[in-house]
Amino acid sequence: SIKEIEKEEIIKVLKEVNFNKKLASEILGIPLRTLYKRLKEYGI
């Protein structure tokens, strides 16, 4: 599903940037606030 793909992509990017959420949100092209929402939604 799209949610699974998105979750995997978020985890992959977070690992690449050593869990720097600000940098991860910039790489993913989403606002930091949205990233936090996704992390909560996906239980990351």
Rank of each mutant, 00 (worst) to 15 (best):
L14A: 01
K12L: 08
E4P: 09
I44M: 09
L23S: 07
P31F: 03
L32E: 05
K7W: 08
I2M: 13
I5N: 14
E8N: 13
S25A: 15
K7D: 07
I5G: 12
G43E: 09
Y42A: 05
L23Q: 10
I30N: 00
R38P: 01
I44E: 05
L28S: 01
K12M: 09
E26L: 12
I5S: 14
I30K: 01
E4T: 08
R38G: 03
K22N: 07
E9V: 13
E26K: 13
I11R: 07
G29A: 07
I44D: 04
E8W: 13
K40D: 09
L39N: 01
R33D: 15
I10E: 01
L32H: 02
I10Q: 01
G29K: 09
L35F: 08
F19G: 14
T34K: 09
S25D: 00
I5K: 15
I11N: 04
L39M: 15
A24D: 00
G29P: 01
I10M: 11
L39G: 01
E16F: 12
K22E: 09
V13Q: 03
E41F: 07
I5R: 14
L32V: 07
I27A: 08
E26I: 14
A24K: 00
A24M: 03
S1I: 10
K22T: 09
K7P: 06
F19E: 03
K3I: 11
K3D: 12
E41V: 05
I11M: 13
K3Q: 13
R33T: 13
K37D: 15
I5A: 15
I10N: 01
E4L: 10
E26A: 13
S25K: 02
K12V: 06
E9H: 14
L32G: 02
G29S: 06
N18L: 08
K3M: 12
L28D: 00
K40C: 04
I2P: 13
L23I: 09
K12P: 01
I10F: 09
L23T: 08
E8H: 12
E41H: 07
E26H: 11
K37F: 07
T34C: 03
V17R: 02
E9N: 15
L35Q: 00
E16Q: 15
L39E: 02
G43H: 09
Y42N: 04
I27R: 13
